[in-house]
């Protein structure tokens, strides 16, 4: 499998976070996950699991606090995939 780029991953992250968006909100790479969405810290960890499964990669818990925006999230996954393959 070719390593997906950050843009493709960001689209998957947006899809997983969609249920937590506010009415009418458009999600983008700059969306701040905790500040802009209706989501708590544990639900974020559950979304991380969904993305981990999708890309068959493990995101260590200690990296999660460094993820602020959807763009950060996608970049982090891309970096992990590049490192692991």
């Amino acid at each position: 499998m070719a390593i997906p780029d950050s843009k493709t991953i960001a689209a998957a992250v947006m899809e997983a976070l969609e249920p937590f968006s506010r009415p009418g909100q458009v999600l983008g790479r700059d969306t701040d996950i905790m500040a802009d969405l209706e989501i708590d810290s544990v639900a974020v960890l559950d979304v991380v699991m969904v993305i981990e499964d999708k890309y068959d990669v493990s995101v260590p818990l200690e990296l999660v606090p460094k993820i602020k925006t959807i763009g950060d999230f996608a970049d982090q996954i891309a970096a992990l995939l590049a490192g692991e393959k």
Partner: peptide
């Protein structure tokens, strides 16, 4: 786990397939 220097992975509650999968990775 925050205090430890180990890498931390979280598996789905009581989901042994998920635990196994994370160990495989």
């Amino acid at each position: 786990v925050k205090l430890s220097s180990a890498k931390i992975l979280r598996f789905r509650h009581n989901d042994m397939k998920d635990l196994e999968h994370r160990l495989e990775r």
